[in-house]
Simulated assay, not measured.
Amino acid sequence: MFPPRHRFGAALVIALTATLATACASQAPPASQPTESMAGTPTAAPPEATPTPTADAADEDPTCETLIGADVVADFESIGWSSRAEKFYLGELELAHGIQCVWADFEGPAGDHLQLFGWAPIGDEEAAEAQTSMVDQGWIREESSEGVYITEPKETTIAVDEEGYGMTYLFVAGSVKLADTKQGLLLIEWPKS
């Protein structure tokens, strides 16, 4: 059902995140203040640490851990779930700069208990073509103040939200979001503001 999984990218993101967190957490120890017992042996203060430059969140690419809120990630991890990053597809169309994340218990028994989130940048013409293609295949198109929703037909839906919506895409100017239900789209917090 899903395209092949790529673990190397996720491992690289986790390693880079850990490296940045370690670098940002280090601080220079406070300079020693002379006391009566140290007065005869002056010591040099350690050099000031140079702060590590951080990239603006708007310039970063999303990861499975940043695509949704930190509290949602913590909830998933607390029940033993982890994520797998995949390529973002709209039908047959791969959006090269997008990400699709599957959250599940990959160590447990196989099943369909999972959560799916995705985001990708997309041009207006490409978005219109994708919407038309999906509607031609039976997907349902709805316009709203948030953007254009494209939802899978009820006949092929595996799981639905409280309103009866299954897998849904939300097209807004310049990007598209994906979740396994329409309500799941509310958990996506990308792009960061």
Rank of each mutant, 00 (worst) to 15 (best):
3 P>L: 03
3 P>F: 04
5 R>W: 03
5 R>D: 12
6 H>C: 11
8 F>L: 14
9 G>C: 09
9 G>D: 14
10 A>N: 12
12 L>A: 15
12 L>N: 09
12 L>T: 14
13 V>E: 15
16 L>E: 13
16 L>A: 14
19 T>P: 01
19 T>A: 15
20 L>C: 10
26 S>W: 14
28 A>Y: 00
30 P>A: 02
33 Q>P: 00
33 Q>R: 05
34 P>E: 05
34 P>W: 03
35 T>W: 02
35 T>E: 08
35 T>H: 01
36 E>C: 08
37 S>L: 06
38 M>N: 13
38 M>R: 07
39 A>Q: 10
43 T>G: 09
44 A>N: 06
44 A>M: 06
48 E>N: 01
53 P>F: 04
54 T>E: 12
54 T>H: 03
57 A>I: 10
60 E>F: 00
60 E>S: 08
60 E>H: 01
60 E>V: 02
61 D>I: 01
62 P>M: 04
64 C>E: 08
64 C>H: 05
67 L>V: 10
71 D>F: 11
74 A>R: 09
74 A>F: 04
75 D>V: 04
75 D>K: 12
78 S>R: 09
81 W>T: 05
82 S>T: 15
85 A>H: 01
86 E>R: 00
87 K>Y: 01
87 K>S: 07
89 Y>D: 00
90 L>D: 03
91 G>E: 07
91 G>F: 02
93 L>G: 00
94 E>K: 02
97 H>C: 03
99 I>G: 00
100 Q>T: 07
106 F>T: 07
109 P>K: 11
110 A>G: 04
110 A>S: 09
114 L>F: 14
115 Q>F: 14
117 F>W: 11
117 F>K: 03
117 F>Y: 15
121 P>N: 11
123 G>F: 06
127 A>P: 04
130 A>D: 03
132 T>H: 08
133 S>Q: 12
135 V>H: 04
135 V>Q: 07
136 D>I: 00
137 Q>M: 08
137 Q>F: 02
141 R>D: 09
141 R>T: 02
143 E>G: 11
145 S>D: 13
145 S>N: 06
146 E>A: 11
147 G>A: 09
150 I>N: 08
150 I>K: 06
151 T>P: 05
151 T>K: 02
154 K>L: 09
156 T>F: 14
157 T>R: 12
165 Y>S: 12
170 L>W: 07
171 F>Y: 14
172 V>A: 13
173 A>F: 06
175 S>T: 06
176 V>W: 02
177 K>D: 11
177 K>V: 00
179 A>R: 03
179 A>E: 07
180 D>N: 15
181 T>N: 12
183 Q>G: 09
183 Q>V: 10
184 G>N: 08
184 G>I: 06
186 L>Y: 11
191 P>T: 03
